[in-house]
Design a protein around this nucleic acid. Structure first.
Lengths: 243, 243
DNA sequence: AGTGGTTCAATGGTCCAACCAATTTCTGCA
DNA sequence: TGCAGAAATTGGTTGGACCATTGAACCACT
């Protein structure tokens, strides 16, 4: 099935640079936000050209592991470890309506599973934290007449965290970020999210009762209302003006 | 919500290069496998240094959009369009057993949703194609005594394709690839996949009957059997030798 | 003290001109 | 015609130079 003679990398200097750098970060116990050595210093210490260092750092930058600030330095953006797996995804044509609906279908899948896992695994502390976020959201919803997207998002994040699998938060957050870059004001639907409001508590109830299938079903209903909102928004958009 | 004073872009030369290159690919209607211009030519035509071109191409290479072959040229690996969204994911510690189980939980979520969507959207031709793959898989399973992982994978892919959302195939394929790079022979469980075998047909039956909830439930059962197999494999592994 | 401007060293971004290594293509001999 | 070796092509690497931005130190003025 897999190639019995995996081709060796003839030249893989920048890969070696990245490995060395990962080892360095690990050894120095550098965390997010911390600054790592200058390109010139790295080049000198690793006995490679500065250009090679730059190509390696460009890779890491592309993976979102590192941020370069001209005149200042290069800073870690995430925890790196020598045994990371990278899965770059590119979504073709993601900034139109159809693309948004496609990402929402992925989110529906993940949201439902995260809720189900959370119902199985959440401990007392997790449930208390989720309920706290839910209360905050409901309060914001009532005092600000439906504008509670920030608290809404935090509620969902607390569920992902309690799912016991960090990948849920990671993937959905990445989608959420993209999503907001292109759809900051969701299609001008003023009461966006109204319809989904009640399902937040029903999801929480299922989680608190450790009912995975119930949580899954309620999460699916929630996303369904968001999809409906978006479809109505798109219909409105067609009647008024285009972006 | 959004920053009222978004920071301005200082310099973004290589980004501009990528945009220009994407436009070029689009204009020339280049598809996967085709060769794109030499770095030297690009540098000359775009009036930038070859280094800048290289940084831009390094980005694309990191995203899996392009493949560079020394002495030969740079080739497209995927379709590129000017409006792509990039979502690089890095899974920390994905190559141990816990990491594998985490990715499998993601796959379970996507698999179930894809099956449900497929049950809703698959047309007659799609269903026929899926059944063909199913027949191939069952035949391979019987003649080769359970070794049908290649055909098994193709069956699943046909479901993703018929889901009407290319993101399912994209994400699961990326996971599948990683997965196989580190776990080529799944933990030495000899009858790996035996338990999941019957669910392939039950999933197909639900899809053919346009029963999304049934398809979702059967897909969940299938992945559950795979998880059980892996857990048994891990238990065996602990008793014999470590990797 | 505090405010604003200036200077200056550090750092990432870009450029250039080579050369190296792998690949492909061409050439000329058998 | 066939094929081995030369030559051209192409990505990979190097070293050195300069530019643009940043941030800290310093200074003048209030």
């Amino acid at each position: 099935m897999t190639d019995p003679l995996p081709p060796i990398q003839a030249t893989a200097r920048d890969d070696a640079v990245l490995k060395a750098l990962a080892a360095f970060v690990r050894q120095e116990a550098l965390g997010p936000g911390e600054k790592l050595p200058t390109e010139r210093i790295l080049a000198e210490r690793l006995k490679v050209s500065r250009n090679t260092v730059r190509e390696a750092l460009t890779r890491w930058e592309g993976l979102g592991l590192v941020e370069r600030r001209q005149g200042s330095g290069t800073y870690l953006k995430a925890a790196v470890s020598p045994d990371m797996l990278h899965m770059p995804l590119t979504l073709a044509g993601g900034n139109d309506f159809a693309g948004l609906m496609r990402t929402l279908e992925i989110r529906r899948a993940l949201e439902a599973e995260a809720a189900a896992l959370c119902a199985v695994r959440a401990g007392k502390a997790d449930i208390a934290e989720i309920e706290r976020k839910l209360d905050l959201m409901e309060e914001a919803f009532h005092t600000r007449a439906g504008m509670s997207s920030e608290e809404d998002w935090e509620f969902h994040q607390s569920i992902y965290r309690a799912s016991g699998n960090p990948l849920f938060e990671q993937i959905i957050s990445a989608m959420h970020e993209l999503f907001h870059r292109f759809w900051e004001h969701p299609l001008g639907v003023r009461d966006f999210g109204h319809a989904s409001f009640p399902y937040h508590r029903t999801i929480f109830d299922c989680i608190a009762a450790h009912d995975p299938e119930g949580a899954r079903a309620e999460a699916l209903k929630l996303i369904a209302t968001v999809e409906d909102d978006l479809k109505r928004g798109a219909a409105n958009l067609k009647l008024s003006d285009r972006r």
